[in-house]
Amino acid sequence: MHIVDDVPELDAAVGEPGQERALTMVLVLDGFLDAGNAAARAAQHLVDLGEGPVVATFDVDQFHDYRARRPAMSFVRDHYEGYDAPRLVVRLLRDTGGTPYLLLQGPEPDNRWEAFTRAVREVVERFRVTRVVSMGSVPMAVPHTRPIAITHHANDPGLLIGESAWRGELRIPSSAQALLEVRLGEWGHAAMGFVAHIPHYLAQLDYPKAAAALLEHVEKAGRLTIDLSDLLVEAEEREVEIARYLAANDEVNDVVIALEQQYDAFERAEESGSSLLAEDQPLPTGEEIGQQFEQFLAGLDGPDADQP
């Protein structure tokens, strides 16, 4: 990793050693946690508002699997050109009110995650970052006609600005972004983030509505002011396109209606404090669930395993 020291704006943003000054670093790693391209679109919006100087660069060759994620380039008639080299950089940006903050943006490392977290720690400590705020998005069985749900997470409960909709423990695939939050907490640095729930039928499209929702939460967590007007216009245009598509495709529209009914039923149950489980029906024990699952697996190898 290379840290750029000759940036006058950075010296002003960081301040003198011992000087108390809040500096947020927004984190977006393209790849795993980016359904609907929401996080990447949010990061690009921040850059579009006023591209600032690069203050740190990572050696992408140490982290990137080029055969798994091949960068694009152009072939023009009889030669190659325009190679889009992957970049993992930290930029110094300013919000609408002139408040400085950092943006760490680029492809999620394919390997050497621990080395990556140590490199980010160096950035955090070198620039005296007071809070790291990450953005991500995952596909969920939710309708686009309802508010964007956001999962809040942090390595310190005191950082949370909203309640989690999840109860209990979920075992999920890890990511470099999630590991970084854990490691920063172990090193005594505040880190938090937001994950938007993207309608699964829109996960492959750009979904600017979710990007705007993520940035609204980043504003609160990072104490920043971000102009979202252009992004909201883009979101409205996409909503019109979706409505036009649903009007011409009854099967997909039926799926959306079913999701709306399911969503509203859960909302009513949450508000009333009631349960959606059938009355007078005890919950199965873990052992009973395990037995049923074992029977299911055994059936896959049975004589009718090839039958639909």
Rank of each mutant, 00 (worst) to 15 (best):
V76Q: 05
T285P: 02
G31N: 11
L184M: 08
Y263I: 08
H217W: 14
A269C: 10
V240Y: 04
Y83W: 14
R118Q: 12
L159H: 02
L93A: 04
G290N: 13
D48I: 00
I3R: 09
G286T: 07
E216P: 01
E108M: 12
F75T: 09
P8E: 02
G158N: 06
R126Q: 09
P308C: 00
A210E: 11
L170S: 12
P139V: 11
V55E: 07
S174Q: 01
S274A: 12
A39D: 07
V133D: 01
E169L: 15
R238K: 15
I198Y: 09
G158H: 06
V218K: 09
H197I: 00
L170F: 13
D48L: 10
P147F: 07
E186Q: 15
F75N: 03
S274D: 09
T117H: 07
A12N: 10
M73A: 13
Q44C: 03
S275P: 05
V132M: 11
L231C: 06
Y80S: 01
E294T: 11
P308E: 12
R91C: 01
L205P: 00
A191K: 07
A211Y: 05
L300G: 02
G31S: 11
E181C: 14
G106I: 08
L276T: 07
T130C: 01
F63V: 12
G168R: 10
L10D: 04
D65N: 15
E125Q: 13
A298V: 00
D78Q: 09
E20Q: 15
V120N: 01
V138G: 01
L170A: 14
S229I: 04
R94A: 04
N249Y: 03
E279Q: 12
S272E: 14
R112G: 01
G136F: 04
I198P: 06
A12L: 14
V120G: 02
Q295L: 12
L104D: 05
I198G: 10
V14N: 08
G286Y: 04
E241H: 08
V195C: 11
L180C: 04
V195M: 14
L232G: 00
L46C: 03
R87P: 01
I3P: 03
I148Q: 09
L160Y: 03
A203D: 09
R69L: 13
G136A: 04
E279M: 05
E251I: 11
M135L: 12
T57Y: 03
R77Q: 13
A258N: 09
P71C: 04
V133T: 03
